[in-house]
């Protein structure tokens, strides 16, 4: 039993985001398998999002998905503190993935500048890097992180 109060809207958003993180994580894995084993097959993109073919990204997306869905499961079991923990950590990692991807985009533009300095004609298309699941799903993660951080800062108690 605890003094945590989590809104149902946050849990609903976590559920949707969690499902999407898991789905994109699995698509990332399938794209990696396609890229590795089936060179003649096109990668799968879903809902206008460019799905990378990177097993590391798959782990990250599935981890966030697991944590957000873990939040929903703990809430259903009335373990609100654990539910808040999953929400906080899951959304923080989701936000971290968003920030890293934005840094990659910035680095992409900076690299074009460096290559131009070296006399090489280079182009960088940011859209595929911006329309990635870690960026798109980073937005609900940002909202969930702000919310979970706010209620985490209130005095919480748990009976042990």
């Amino acid at each position: 039993m605890s003094t945590v109060k989590i809104s149902s809207a946050a849990t609903a958003l976590a559920f949707i985001a969690g499902i999407l993180y898991m789905a994109y994580g699995l698509l990332t894995l399938s794209n990696w398998l396609i890229y590795t084993f089936l060179p003649n097959v096109s990668a799968i993109d879903w809902l206008l999002v460019f799905v990378p073919s990177d097993p590391g990204c798959m782990i990250a997306l599935v981890t966030v998905g697991m944590l957000l869905l873990g939040h929903v499961i703990y809430r259903a079991r009335r373990s609100d503190v654990k539910a808040l923990s999953c929400l906080l950590v899951g959304s923080a990692i989701g936000l971290g993935l968003l920030i890293i991807q934005l840094l990659v985009v910035v680095a992409g533009y900076a690299d074009v500048g460096v290559l131009a300095l070296a006399g090489e004609a280079a182009e960088y298309e940011a859209l595929p890097d911006l329309l990635r699941p870690d960026v798109v799903l980073g937005i609900p993660s940002l909202a969930l992180f702000a919310y979970s951080l706010k209620i985490s800062r209130a005095p919480l108690k748990v009976y042990k």
Binding site: C57, I59, A60, V62, L67, V81, S85
Partner: peptide
Amino acid sequence: KPVTLSDLVDMSVTHKVFGIPIMLTMIFV
């Protein structure tokens, strides 16, 4: 027991199921 922000983070970060995926994600980041 009052629950601190550290306690909250540790509940997931050292969780028997989530702990290792979180660690791999951190390394990926």
